[in-house]
């Protein structure tokens, strides 16, 4: 039997995390299929068929799947799941939204956001915001899984030549309709997808002074984050928050400015590649996780850093 990957896409192209999910699926067995559901998704299906290692693309092109609402999509997943040992989706907001609903329809205990495959029924997943790793074993015949994209390499593309199979639409649950979307129109990268993040904490001092953090971010083409303390102090909106109750990030470079390093903040960023801490308090716990620590007043250090980067 094969593994099925649920494609995350915007109607035109695949979202990159789908490729990482294919890699996780290939770790479970050689035959991987992809389900592309949507409306007018021919280009997405062709893109999926070219992913290395994918042998079949199931397509379900129907108006009811246009916005990938879980009320419509979960019954479709349930209708094709019987052909597979595992159904996997990326742990994006899309995958997290639909997979548990499909699991309820199938009476399966889903496994969220795995970071490693041990064997066909055993997986590693972070819990307590990554402060512990749980190894869990599923007793269900069918496994429904979401995959943490940063934990698996992206599958290659271009060498695949999967066959296409159209599958019939399933009855959708009524009651939900899509109104609109407002995607963040920022020149800066999105926090959870950024390669570099510059974050500010209470030490930044004021809402006005947060412009320093933004200027450094712009010099590095980085996203802007914040600690909960900075959010609570009203320096920045809540969606900037990195931490256990905010966003979990793992960029290649994380620069923490004026952040003391409370447990709840560390939980959200300690999987970053390289961590830099700039703080005038040399006892700040952030220095214990930082690869490079600079004990300095950020009001002096950040402008210097921006100047140095421009050179």
């Amino acid at each position: 039997m094969a593994q099925l990957v649920l494609a995350d896409h915007d109607g035109v192209t695949l979202r990159p995390a789908t490729l990482n999910t294919v890699t996780a699926a290939l770790a479970l067995g050689p035959e991987v299929h992809i389900l592309v559901a949507g409306s007018g998704v021919g280009s997405v299906a062709r893109e999926a068929a070219a992913i290395n290692g994918v042998s079949k693309v199931l397509t379900c092109d129907d108006e009811r799947y246009r916005h990938l609402l879980p009320e419509a999509l979960a019954p479709l997943i349930a209708s094709v799941a019987g052909r597979y040992t595992h159904v996997l989706a990326p742990a994006t907001t899309f995958g997290k939204n639909v997979m548990p609903r499909a699991a309820a329809l199938l009476d399966v205990a889903p496994i969220s956001e795995i970071s490693a495959v041990v064997d066909a029924s055993t997986f590693v997943r972070p819990v307590y915001a990554g402060n512990a790793l749980a190894t869990v074993q599923s007793a269900d015949a069918l496994k429904l899984i979401t995959v943490r994209g940063t934990a698996f390499d992206a599958a290659g593309t271009g060498a695949g030549s999967a066959s296409l199979e159209s599958v019939p639409a399933a009855d959708a649950t009524e009651g939900a309709s899509w109104l609109s979307e407002q995607m963040t129109q920022s020149a800066r990268p999105e926090l959870t997808a950024a390669k570099i993040i510059v974050s500010g904490g209470r030490g930044v001092g004021s809402r006005e002074n947060f412009a320093l953090i933004e200027a450094l971010a712009d010099a590095l083409n980085a996203a802007v984050g914040a600690s909960r303390a900075a959010v609570d102090a009203g320096f920045v909106p809540n969606d900037y928050q990195v931490g256990q109750t905010g966003k979990i990030v793992a960029p290649s470079l994380y620069i923490a400015c004026g952040i003391s390093g409370a447990i709840q903040h560390l939980a959200g960023m300690k999987d970053s590649g390289v961590i830099v801490a700039i703080n005038k308090d040399e006892e700040a716990p952030i220095f214990q996780v930082a690869d490079y620590g600079l004990v300095a007043d950020l009001n002096k250090a950040i402008p210097e850093l921006i100047d140095a980067l421009k050179r």
């Binding site: 055993t122 190894t135 074993q137 620590g293 004990v295």
Partner: peptide, 29 residues
């Protein structure tokens, strides 16, 4: 339905270094 076989601490981060100034930081990065 899910059996938790074990719980482990994630690998700890290796200790880093202190840099004396911005120029050294930029050079290291």
């Amino acid at each position: 339905r899910l059996k938790v076989l074990s719980l482990a601490e994630p690998p700890a981060r290796a200790g880093g270094i202190r840099v004396p100034d911005v120029a050294t930081l930029v050079a290291k990065l």
